[in-house]
């Protein structure tokens, strides 16, 4: 997998999580900056997914194909999920949602890397 994209898909959500935590503490709903941030995160994880699938098609194989696919599908769904729920909840709790989902994304990326790299199950 592309190391730069993987690093970005860990780092950017963490930054966004911190940013929406600020909004939570200030008792603010998520604003445009958070939604744009989610969109950027989505683009990055989509790019990661595309490069991973391209590498797969090119002969490399994830160690555990089923699990890898599951994590990949989950990953690309997370930012839109956060965005939709955050828009439904224009209170500080919307910011909590963005924070929580943005903390989960790096975990999923790390697990994704593990299922790609570790041989065997």
């Amino acid at each position: 997998m592309n190391d730069l994209l993987a690093t970005l898909s860990i780092a950017l959500p963490l930054v966004l999580a911190a940013w929406s935590l600020v909004a939570t503490i200030r008792n603010r709903p998520p604003d445009r900056s958070h939604l744009v941030g989610l969109a950027v995160v989505e683009l990055v994880v989509l790019a990661l997914a595309v490069t991973a699938l391209a590498a797969w098609a090119g002969g490399e194989r994830p160690a555990d194909a089923g699990t890898f696919t599951g994590y990949l599908l989950t990953l690309v769904c997370l930012p839109p999920l956060a965005g939709v729920l955050a828009r439904m909840e224009p209170t500080r709790w919307g910011s909590v949602i963005v924070t929580v989902v943005c903390l989960v994304i790096p975990v999923v990326v790390v697990r994704l890397q593990q299922t790609w790299q570790v041989p065997g199950v």
Partner: peptide, 22 residues
């Protein structure tokens, strides 16, 4: 399903996805 409840729903969705995928 609103306020803190919506955040709770979000976490439940995450676990619903995680557990069913697993």
């Amino acid at each position: 399903n609103s306020g803190p409840g919506r955040a709770l729903v979000a976490v439940y969705i995450l676990f619903a996805i995680a557990a069913s995928a697993r």
